[in-house]
Amino acid sequence: MNYSFEYIDIILLAMIAGFIFLRLRGILGKRTGFEGKNPKQFQDILKEVHQESNLKQKENFDKKAQSEFLKGAKIAYETIITDFSDNDNKLIASKPLLSKEIYEEFNKALKDRSDRGHYAEITFIGIKSADIKEHKKMDKALQVTVDFVSEIITCIRDKEKKIVSGSPDKIKTIYDTWTFSRDMRSNNPNWFLVNTLN
């Protein structure tokens, strides 16, 4: 008799366990083996937010960013101008500041000058003013156009050191409009000269 009660207890417990299993399965669902993409981890989400925040900061060309840009633009302007005065007629100091197209254009001008047997003497007096004319986003790049007014003493001499053009004693006021560009998604902080007008 006791055995029959034990069997009934086992059957009842099995029924209760089965009921609980079915209820949990109905509430939680079942694992099929195809779960789709795993949800992003919290750290991954934070990383994406951080990258997006950095991108927006880079794209925010406010007054502070403009002021910092102009400091670098003035240095770049002087470096590029004085690089043309080297007797070797090569762009060495300014090469990292130039886009590929501008580098080739400037290099051709230097080669033409060298083929004529000429070289330039340039004394950079200083920049009188440098003002941002415009800045605009072009695809992934930010382009900034700057109006420069500078004072320079320049003359071109031939192989015999005779003056071909310019004057070694006269200060000239030069007006240039240069456009610099930078890929805002790149970690490279450098700006490149992409266009010149004068």
Results as ranks from 00 to 15, higher is better:
31 R>P: 01
26 G>H: 07
33 G>R: 04
117 G>R: 04
46 L>K: 09
86 D>Q: 07
13 L>Y: 09
88 D>K: 07
75 I>S: 10
47 K>M: 11
34 F>M: 12
66 Q>F: 06
127 I>E: 03
73 A>I: 03
75 I>N: 09
112 D>T: 13
39 P>T: 08
73 A>W: 00
124 F>D: 00
31 R>G: 06
96 P>F: 02
121 E>Y: 12
71 K>E: 13
113 R>V: 02
43 Q>K: 15
65 A>G: 03
111 K>F: 05
102 I>M: 10
127 I>G: 02
32 T>C: 02
59 E>M: 14
133 K>A: 14
81 I>V: 15
92 I>A: 07
78 E>P: 00
22 L>K: 12
94 S>H: 00
40 K>Y: 08
50 H>Y: 12
49 V>W: 05
119 Y>I: 06
114 S>Q: 11
65 A>N: 08
64 K>R: 09
89 N>A: 13
81 I>K: 04
78 E>W: 00
111 K>H: 03
60 N>C: 11
31 R>L: 10
44 D>F: 05
44 D>M: 06
51 Q>K: 13
105 E>D: 09
12 L>S: 09
108 K>D: 08
117 G>I: 06
80 I>Y: 03
11 I>G: 10
79 T>N: 04
25 R>I: 06
122 I>K: 05
53 S>E: 08
50 H>R: 10
101 E>I: 09
94 S>P: 02
42 F>V: 09
105 E>V: 03
115 D>Y: 02
116 R>W: 02
90 K>V: 03
124 F>V: 01
7 Y>E: 12
62 D>W: 03
50 H>N: 12
80 I>G: 01
108 K>C: 02
76 A>G: 05
116 R>T: 05
123 T>L: 12
17 A>C: 14
51 Q>T: 10
64 K>H: 11
44 D>A: 11
62 D>P: 00
111 K>R: 06
7 Y>C: 10
80 I>M: 09
19 F>H: 07
106 F>D: 06
126 G>W: 08
63 K>I: 11
126 G>E: 04
46 L>G: 01
74 K>W: 02
95 K>H: 04
47 K>S: 15
89 N>E: 03
63 K>A: 15
94 S>W: 00
76 A>V: 00
80 I>T: 13
39 P>C: 06
25 R>T: 11
39 P>S: 08
90 K>G: 00
119 Y>N: 11
89 N>R: 06
64 K>I: 13
92 I>P: 00
116 R>Q: 15
56 K>E: 10
73 A>Y: 02
121 E>K: 14
53 S>H: 12
100 K>D: 15
65 A>D: 05
42 F>G: 04
103 Y>G: 02
28 L>I: 06
71 K>Q: 10
98 L>W: 02
13 L>R: 09
14 A>H: 03
15 M>E: 09
